[in-house]
Design a binder for these strands. Sequence first.
DNA 1: CCTATTGTGTAGTGATAACTACATAATATA
DNA 2: TATATTATGTAGTTATCACTACACAATAGG
Lengths: 211, 211
Amino acid sequence: MFMKTKNLTASVSKRRAGRPRAFERDDALDIAMDLFWRHGFDATSTNQLTSAMDISPPSLYAAFGSKEALYREAIAQYQKRYGAFFSEPIGADCSAWDAVERVLLGAAKQFSNPSHAPGCMIACGELQSSADNAFLIAEIAALRQDAQRAIRVRLEAARKVGELPAVTDTGALAAFYAMVIQGMAVQARDGASLARLKRMASLAMHAWPSK
Amino acid sequence: MFMKTKNLTASVSKRRAGRPRAFERDDALDIAMDLFWRHGFDATSTNQLTSAMDISPPSLYAAFGSKEALYREAIAQYQKRYGAFFSEPIGADCSAWDAVERVLLGAAKQFSNPSHAPGCMIACGELQSSADNAFLIAEIAALRQDAQRAIRVRLEAARKVGELPAVTDTGALAAFYAMVIQGMAVQARDGASLARLKRMASLAMHAWPSK
DNA sequence: CCTATTGTGTAGTGATAACTACATAATATA
DNA sequence: TATATTATGTAGTTATCACTACACAATAGG
């Protein structure tokens, strides 16, 4: 007969054999995400991670495998928790102009939200890092490219239906708005206010091609 | 009687007593600048530095004092060698529009120039770093603020002489163009071409207030 | 109860971090 | 030549890095 237990993971998935984990994996991951977001991969030590997560090194390695694997999970957690400001509007059933404006205003709000680390974990992620982490650096750069590509796809669709002039270079325009998001992330990290970031978003919309 | 010697520093400054330095301080500094530019302060080890500079640790410490002091000198070297794309146009005797456009086009050229590291050492500098380097992080952020302030001063002067509408929020406009420079630096680091960056600069000029 | 399985806590591992002690080499000046 | 000064090369220092060996604790299923 199934019985409720104190097992922390019981509520999420079927209980496995063996001693149950003494901490919430997802909570620990949130803490790791916050540290990696603020300080990057290199500058976040396993000591800082285990201290902040309030677990011992063997627990960290048993649960996540390695520092690098933990970083990858933290990035995925970031996308899951904070990726909607981008993915939701860019795929929404609205005009491309509205979609891009919503992305930029969403970025302004999220990058300056004091309830979490400032800026964007991906936009500012691993821009300067050890050559040892070349693979990790390339992965984060690929995520930035993915976002830029998603903008381009949205713009290209808009161009095809006449929302944008037929001659529009959607690749260049997508790169411009990706650049704006990245610049806003740097500004947010330097303490730019919500109002300032919203104004930047508004000014960036002036680059939109006129028909 | 003064005689030419093999002393490397003799040509630059009056020879001091003691054994002469066996390497060109300025060349070594250029090498350190390149490493710090690419990988940041944390991810550049003294081992990498001494190897690349082809000197021993005691020589590095005798010449520069500490890794942190070397980083500061590398930043100063960067400003001296690569700061002109910004400081020259921003102080030039031309319209504010021309000044800002020249800064952005200069950034496009410099950030993508393959003869040195991509992007900007200051725009992308220490965005993610160890909490131990809080002082260093604040210094680089201050340099970004200095640049933004210089733009604002230039725009404010333009507003006063009627080059910009009297109602222009020059602080917000300066933040926008600083953001564009920072975003372009991220794009350059991710491999954006000169043509792409120039197009971004051109699109950013559309945010300029109409009279 | 037993066994298998999985997580935890203690206390480490070797590698590398930034940095330096010390003897010696090379110069300026007396 | 003698002394003071500065740089170099060898070979370290202590601290921290990412990570783990090992004994034991806590669970599932039989």
